[in-house]
């Protein structure tokens, strides 16, 4: 299984902090998975419909959206960070 965690307005629009899904094929990229999730419609489409507004981390490391998910256990999806 793959755990997906959401933060900030991505979390609010989807209405979930995290969820589990069946592990996709190893070659599936983060962007591919975002498109799959957005196709669920509703809050998912609101949160994930425009991938240019999203950033991601695999197993707690920032990764470009064209990175394959491979054998990562946790994918995080969120807007660009605004700390400091």
């Amino acid at each position: 299984m793959l755990t997906i965690v959401y933060f900030a307005w991505v979390r609010e629009r989807i209405g979930l902090d995290e969820e589990q899904m069946a592990r996709p094929d190893a070659g599936t990229t983060i962007a591919d998975l975002i498109a799959l999730l957005a196709a669920r419609g509703g809050g998912y489409a609101d949160a994930l419909g425009d991938a240019t507004r999203l950033r991601a981390a695999l197993d707690q490391r920032f990764m470009a959206l064209d990175t394959p998910i491979g054998d990562a256990r946790e994918l995080a999806l969120f807007p660009p960070v605004t700390g400091g």
Binding site: P80, V81, T82
Partner: peptide, 26 residues
């Protein structure tokens, strides 16, 4: 401080008088 702003996983939400809220844009 520059790196914390763009490389640390924090997100700021603003709360205003009257109940309006909004996420700070990077």
């Amino acid at each position: 401080i520059d790196w914390l702003k763009s490389e640390a996983p924090f997100w700021k939400k603003e709360h205003f008088e009257g109940g309006a809220t909004g996420w700070v844009e990077a």
